[in-house]
């Protein structure tokens, strides 16, 4: 699984990254978490509110920081 955190480095992006890593650990997933900070690349995903969460090139969340439980739900639906 390839997970991308989209965000220019704001506080919310760090929070999303933390929630995501927590969820990945809790689920014991073999996932690669990558941060995307380039505005052009972020916008290319069609999101206009950061932070965004992309799983295997599909946007699953944008514009809010979810709880770790919510990220777990989203990730386990895509295993």
């Amino acid at each position: 699984m390839h997970i991308k955190i989209l965000g220019p480095g704001c506080a919310n992006c760090a929070n999303l990254e933390r929630a995501t890593r927590e969820a990945v650990d809790a689920l014991g997933l073999d996932a690669q978490v990558e941060k995307v900070t380039d505005y052009g690349e972020i916008a290319a995903y069609g999101i206009m509110r950061t932070p965004g969460l992309v799983v295997d090139e599909e946007v699953v969340l944008a514009g809010l920081v979810p709880t770790a439980a919510r990220v777990k739900e989203l990730l386990s639906a895509r295993v």
Binding site: G40, A43, A44, Y45, G46, I47, M48, R49, E57, E58, V59, V60, L61, A62, G63, L64
Partner: peptide, 13 residues
């Protein structure tokens, strides 16, 4: 900005 290609269907939050 003009060269940015939007891919995929954007998610409606």
């Amino acid at each position: 900005v003009f060269e940015t290609k939007l891919r995929g269907k954007p998610l409606d939050p």
